[in-house]
Amino acid sequence: MFPEPWAAEAFAMTVHLHENGLFSWSEWAEALSIEVHRPGRAEDGSDYFDCWVAALSGLLVAKGIADAGVILALQSAWQRAAEATPHGMPIELGNDPLR
């Protein structure tokens, strides 16, 4: 089914946002198609959900819902937060030492 939990979440977020009318499914298919057809994608389709996440990020930026710089900054913040969180504790964004 889903290779990893983040893939399931990305999938569900997309379905949810579409149901709430943020974009049409054709807009989504177009965004996904662009990512899937980028040079260097895996021949076996194993990076399919990477494409999915890239398409969702791109569409949110194109729609003015999210800012590309903000997404990247938050991505780094979550990675720092994960590394700063002791094993066994829930990872929270507030654990980022730079926040």
């Binding site: 983040w6 979440e9 996440v53 949110l60 938050l74 780094s76 913040a77 979550w78 094993h87």
Partner: peptide, 16 residues
């Protein structure tokens, strides 16, 4: 704990 780029990206989108 480590988040892969994809894990962290999905978390970032959720946060936004």
């Amino acid at each position: 704990n480590r988040y892969s780029d994809m894990q962290a990206r999905v978390r970032a989108l959720e946060t936004v």
